[in-house]
Write a protein that binds this DNA or RNA. Sequence first.
DNA 1: CAGGTAAATGCAATCGATTGCACTACGAAC
DNA 2: GTTCGTAGTGCAATCGATTGCATTTACCTG
Lengths: 337, 337
Amino acid sequence: MRDRVTLADVAKVAGVNPATVSRSLNEQTENQVNKETVRRIRKIARELGYTPNTVARGLRTRKSLTIGVVIPDLTNPIFPPLVRGVDSYLLPRGYSAFVVNTDGNSETENTLINSLMERQVDGLIIATGHGGDEMLAEFHKRGLCAVMVNRESPGAPFPAVTGDDSAGIGVVIEHLAKLGHKNVLHIAGPAESSTGRLRSQAFTAQSKKHGISGKVAKTNFYSIEAGQSAMDKILENKANPFTAVVAGNDLLALGVYHSIRSHNLNIPKDISVVGFNNMPFTQDFQPPMTTVDVPHFDMGVEAARLLLSQFDSEERAPIKVTLPVSLIVRGSTGLVS
Amino acid sequence: MRDRVTLADVAKVAGVNPATVSRSLNEQTENQVNKETVRRIRKIARELGYTPNTVARGLRTRKSLTIGVVIPDLTNPIFPPLVRGVDSYLLPRGYSAFVVNTDGNSETENTLINSLMERQVDGLIIATGHGGDEMLAEFHKRGLCAVMVNRESPGAPFPAVTGDDSAGIGVVIEHLAKLGHKNVLHIAGPAESSTGRLRSQAFTAQSKKHGISGKVAKTNFYSIEAGQSAMDKILENKANPFTAVVAGNDLLALGVYHSIRSHNLNIPKDISVVGFNNMPFTQDFQPPMTTVDVPHFDMGVEAARLLLSQFDSEERAPIKVTLPVSLIVRGSTGLVS
DNA sequence: CAGGTAAATGCAATCGATTGCACTACGAAC
DNA sequence: GTTCGTAGTGCAATCGATTGCATTTACCTG
């Protein structure tokens, strides 16, 4: 793209100083310029096809109007809605989002965050579950603006937006208790992720509260494969008394589906299964999945809102926003036979 | 983020000119500087925590190392793999991707592409199905680098990467013919999209070739809702002779699932259904969906590769890359009863 | 009519990095 | 002992827009 029209080009045609053009085109400063001149300059700018150079502006103003969004993996279907939520708040306000994928690798995460800083992002929205806590603390000291989403940040007092994991697990256990389940298995998400830990803790606490015998199996990733292999291991042990499985998220739950199916067992007749997130397509699985709806789009909106609100205010309180979740009962849970 | 370390800061500490620091830190120019000096300066830069300012560099070099990726909607599960493919090629080469969503709205598309241009993207990867052809032609004249993916661009001779739509529909029809289907319905994607048109044309041609009576129903969007309502309308007409439905993509096919189910019919016993794309989770639907696998990740890689290759070479030939597709037979297609 | 005020515009520095050109040494060649 | 080449650095312009300050012009007031 060559021969771009610059402020100076417009100024030359209009016979004025570039400064005047700059002021005329900016709504904040146009009142410093004669109304008639503004009209004339705007017209010329339009005719010449002038487009401001955001890069040059960013250099001078020290604002890039760009936000970095750090997620583990875009192909996990909970993230696209979250990103869209972020976008929906940022775009009308002149901001754009840079989305990067860490694949759960904290080294990759460091590299990518650094690359985002080099690109002068004004702030970060971080949705990765684990890693980089010491780096975040370092960044916080240096005055970086960031908001955590779907996670906490023990080391750095950034604001955080999360779903109500604890309450979500609560309604799940309550639901299973009502159906008569006494022995429930939790396929927990990775312990390095705060959602993994929180849901696991809540599971143990709530089980006890409802007089349910709750056991926990661990996984290293939030993925279908991890869920399947964890469940496979459980089912190999013939003498398992479980009548229901609470998975750390929907992907793990889907892995559990695969495992149960491959062992010629029936959901929910033999084993009930519950997911977490209500990601797209869970209602189309066989059977439709009972899960906990988490408002990911809204989480994105809220995170973006919090981040931008930090730019104005000097104080940076470690605000915590917890969004309500709700149980979606479908066909994967049933009465104990 | 205040108090960033700049080249000048490093230069002051090292007691040299900023130019020398710049040359020392750049692999292309470091041989212009004394080896010992380079070593010293690099050490100081590291100790001070210097990070280059990509914005400033971009202003001077007229390269942003940024690529704009224009897609209709990130929540359509075929796009995350495509974006990841683009990323996987760009990142190791120092580029980053700006992803924007147009929601199939060509006015939004214009706005967003303009915003990307203002941000000085070095090139564009465009995956939106329709709209903006005259704008693309204009951009092409002005020397913009772009690659179309999953679509053609009649108005502008940009390179394009697509799946082999025609061959895909071919194997689908062949498959259905073998199963004995004589009356097949095509729920076509929007006519404004090149995939919609191509698949529809291929359907008509291939049906004729195999002696199948092929009818076409149109939709305005690639969405579950559009597929469902289109199929609802068909099924209201009691006297329909169709034994199989070929949907324009998997989302439309899923809508067809919903419609068929709500009419208390069975897939594939009453009606066979075929999708297109093999998007994630199609194998987990009830029944698992027969569909055409399109290598979206590879399409992203290929698009990125083509785009970057344009930067070097002066000539910009309208290359067309067609990636092979393959039929994935699952449970949603069966013999005619 | 002098003096003051405000509106409108120009001037020039600035943001941070890159790069063509000029300059200084130093060693080699004649 | 000049002259020349070359390696190593410095100087200063540049990218395009923004903005504090200076300057001009016009108008108003006493």
